[in-house]
Design a protein around this nucleic acid. Sequence first.
DNA 1: AGTATTATCCC
DNA 2: CGGGATAATAC
Length: 524
Amino acid sequence: MVGRLAEWRYSCRKSHRTHYSEWDRSAASDAPAYAEFGNSGSNGLSQTQSPTLEEVMDYISADSGSTWAREPSILSTVTVAPWTSPVEPATQNWASCLSAPAPELIITEQPKQRGMRFRYQCEGRSAGSILGESSTEHSKTLPAISLINCEGIKDVKVSVCLVWKDPPYRIHPHGLVGKDCHDGICEITLHPDEGQTNHSFSNLGIQCVRKKEIETAVKARLSLGIDPYSAGMWRHHEEVDLNVVRLCFQAWYTTAAGQRMPIGRVLSEPVYDKKSTNTSELKICRMNKDHGRCDGGEEIYILCDKVQKEDIQVMFLEGKWEARADFSQADVHRQIAIVLKTPPYHDLHIRDPAPVQVCLQRITDGIRSEGMIFTYMPRCSDSFGLRKKRPCLSSPFEDLNGLDPHGIESKRKKAIPDFREHCNTISDFTPGPFCGLDYLPHMHQMGAGEPTHHEIEDTDENFEALISWIPGELDDLPEAMAFENFLPVTEDEETASVVGLSLALTGRQLPDCAYPEDSRMGGC
DNA sequence: AGTATTATCCC
DNA sequence: CGGGATAATAC
């Protein structure tokens, strides 16, 4: 467990290196604290995955006895104030003295955490608009707050600024732009005495600064007194994580005596930059295969939105069952494609096709993409897989006839395939034999009576004859040499198969169009 | 020095 | 906006 945590920390450091360095430093001097997180159980951290940073934070904040939350030495990089609670009812103390319900500021609609891109100044003033978390494609919501127990107050000033995702919630160099925004913050005045206690923020955009502007931006904000957590400037402030912010809502009112009273200080959930690959939404765009053998090990290509090769896994899911697809970092191509091997299905003896979900999952935060269906096929009842008839194409090269020359359409949204089709692959011939050239005429003979199909008796004799011919172990033949690709269906295909087979046996590249059905990407 | 990723800028 | 080209950095 400790090892896994260390691994998690390592990956965090890699992908958010700058941002977490403060914690890394702390943790280095307090290994036992980390070990304690790893025991999960009652501490609320996930048991099935590495804990997220938030979880660790929650754990820390819940653990008042933690030495390193108070230990001055670990705060050596902090120039101003120590850490304080994220949601702090600032009004609690005096309110209880007055025995009146304390005025409060609450977030009634959190900002949507993902999906909006931070914009540079050079991209224009309109930096988009942060939506509410319950927004859908059809109904938009906005981030919103509500003032509670403020009925009698005339003016309440509300201010929103951006802070770091993590304690001590320093001011963030990025700024808010849009309606009611200036100097990177958004300020409005509400009149609760007139019933105006709610507000939703429309047209709030996040404008990002360039790295070289971080210091200037932070100083500018601090000089305006914007620093809700009095966290000040960090001497390594340029190490801020520029891909995530939190909105910090604050409110004040002025008493009759002219005293300025704070009402609240509330943090939103983190808001992540859509453009950054370590926080963006994950998406599978296409897979080259939507079904396969239930014992797994089949190669599949997935095209996806940009991912980070060291922080991505592909999960196969069905209810509580989860299996991770097998691939290495080298199998992630330019961040947008993954070549993987399917994991075996949990039941190798299924009788019917079993559809499961395939999705991308980021390792560090556990976020998953939407699933795409992949259907596991039963193994064949006849070990040869030859008894089954194979459906006949109207034309073996249908795809070449103009409508879909690249076979793109034909790969889209296929219906759940008939598992018999799947059974015809040579890999069903455990232990992986291969048919010899001289087997083809034999096959032809046997199918002579059938105009569209050839069938071969699944007898032990035939099987023995087949495997006895084979020179050696051919377990690892590429999928392109699947038996179905060589099994003649029509005269044309048979010719193609003979060509294909002979080429395959001589180890030469097959012309794409020699395949009755090209199962590889790209097509003819 | 070359490749892979990220940051910025453009449309 | 979303997509993508290009400059700038990181391995």
